[in-house]
Each structure stands twice: as structure tokens, then as C-alpha cells.
Amino acid sequence: TTFEIRVGDLRITLHNADEEEIRWAEEALRRGIHADEILRTLEERRR
């Protein structure tokens, strides 16, 4: 599944994310964390 998060002009697309990952990514985007860093962190958490 694919889920797109939008916060203002910012956007990130997550693939195969669970609800916790989606909530975490949305909050991180709101705090101004760059999408590349969010994706990198999620990848590390999945390992």
C-alpha cells in the first residue's frame, strides 16, 4: 500500500507503512524534518 502525507507544501509518500510509522512520519514532517531523513529513519527502524 502507498500512503501520502501532506503538511502544507511538504509531501512524503510511504510504501507498506503501518499506522505507527505513518503517525510518526506525519509528526516528523510537521516538525520540519526533511523527507529523506524520515525515509532513512523508517528504513533503519524496520531492520
Rank of each mutant, 00 (worst) to 15 (best):
A28F: 08
E19D: 12
R23H: 08
H15S: 07
W24C: 02
A17P: 14
E44N: 11
A25K: 00
D18I: 12
F3W: 04
E43Y: 14
R45E: 04
D18R: 11
A17I: 05
I38E: 00
E37C: 09
I38R: 00
E44H: 15
T41G: 09
H34C: 09
V7H: 04
L42S: 01
R40D: 07
E37A: 07
D9R: 04
I5K: 01
E19N: 10
H15I: 10
E27M: 14
E44I: 14
T1C: 15
E20M: 08
A35H: 06
G8C: 03
R6T: 14
R23K: 12
A35W: 03
A17N: 02
A35P: 15
L10A: 11
E43Q: 11
R30K: 11
D9Y: 07
I33T: 09
E4H: 03
D18S: 13
R47H: 13
I33D: 07
E44R: 14
G32D: 03
R47C: 08
D36V: 09
D9V: 07
L14C: 04
H15T: 12
H34W: 09
D36H: 09
D18P: 03
R11V: 15
L29R: 01
A35F: 05
E27G: 10
E27W: 15
V7L: 05
E44S: 14
L10C: 05
E20F: 10
E20G: 12
T13N: 03
T1H: 13
E26D: 04
D36R: 07
R23A: 11
R11W: 10
T41W: 13
R46Q: 04
I5N: 01
N16D: 08
R46V: 04
R6S: 13
L39E: 05
D36G: 08
L10Q: 14
L39A: 03
E4S: 01
I22L: 06
A35G: 09
T41D: 06
W24A: 02
I22Q: 04
A25V: 12
T2R: 09
L14G: 01
F3G: 13
L14V: 09
I5T: 02
R6L: 13
E20C: 11
L14A: 00
R6N: 13
A35L: 05
E26G: 14
E27D: 10
E37M: 13
R6I: 15
R6K: 13
R6F: 14
L42K: 00
E21R: 01
R45V: 07
G8A: 03
L42W: 03
E44W: 13
L29C: 04
E4P: 11
E27Y: 13
L10W: 07
W24N: 01
T13S: 04
E37T: 10
T1N: 14
E43D: 11
E26M: 15
A35D: 03
R11G: 07
R11K: 13
L42D: 00
I38S: 00
E21S: 08
T2Q: 11
T41N: 07
H15E: 07
R30A: 06
D9M: 08
I5H: 01
T41V: 12
T1L: 15
L14F: 05
R31P: 00
A17M: 05
R45D: 03
T1Y: 13
E4C: 12
R30W: 12
E37R: 07
H34V: 10
R45I: 10
T41A: 13
R47A: 09
D36S: 10
E26L: 15
E37P: 01
D9I: 13
A35C: 03
R23N: 07
A35V: 12
G32I: 01
A17H: 02
L10D: 09
A35I: 06
V7Q: 03
R45Q: 07
L42R: 01
R46G: 03
E21I: 05
T13H: 06
I5R: 00
I22K: 05
D9P: 07
I12L: 14
V7W: 11
E43V: 11
T41E: 12
G8R: 02
D18G: 07
I38V: 09
E20Q: 11
A17W: 02
E19Y: 10
I33V: 13
E21D: 09
R40W: 11
E43G: 09
R30E: 04
G32T: 01
N16R: 05
E21F: 10
E21W: 05
F3Q: 15
R6A: 09
R11P: 02
A25N: 00
I38P: 00
E4V: 05
I22T: 03
R6Q: 14
D36A: 08
I38C: 00
T13K: 06
H34F: 11
R46F: 05
R47Q: 11
G32V: 01
I33Q: 06
T2G: 15
T2L: 08
R23D: 03
R23C: 04
R40Q: 09
T1A: 10
E37G: 04
N16S: 05
L29D: 01
E21C: 09
A28Y: 07
R45N: 09
I5G: 01
G32K: 04
L29T: 02
A17L: 06
I33C: 07
I22P: 00
A25F: 04
R47I: 13
E4M: 02
E21A: 07
E37L: 10
L42A: 01
G32E: 03
D18M: 08
R23G: 07
T41R: 13
D18N: 12
R6Y: 12
V7N: 03
R40L: 11
D36T: 10
R40A: 08
I22N: 01
H15L: 05
R23W: 07
R46K: 07
R31T: 08
A17T: 08
E4Q: 02
I33K: 09
E37V: 13
I12W: 06
I38G: 00
L10G: 03
G32W: 04
E19S: 10
L39C: 10
I5D: 05
E19G: 08
D9G: 05
T1V: 10
L39P: 01
A35Y: 06
R11Q: 07
E44V: 13
E21K: 01
I5C: 14
N16T: 03
H15G: 03
R31I: 10
R6D: 08
I12Q: 01
E20T: 10
T1I: 14
L29S: 02
E27N: 13
R45C: 05
E43L: 14
A25G: 02
A35M: 03
E20L: 11
D36P: 10
G32H: 05
F3R: 14
W24E: 02
I12G: 00
L14W: 03
T2F: 13
R40N: 09
T41Q: 11
E26P: 00
E21P: 00
L10V: 15
R30G: 06
W24P: 00
E44G: 10
I38Y: 01
T2S: 15
I38N: 00
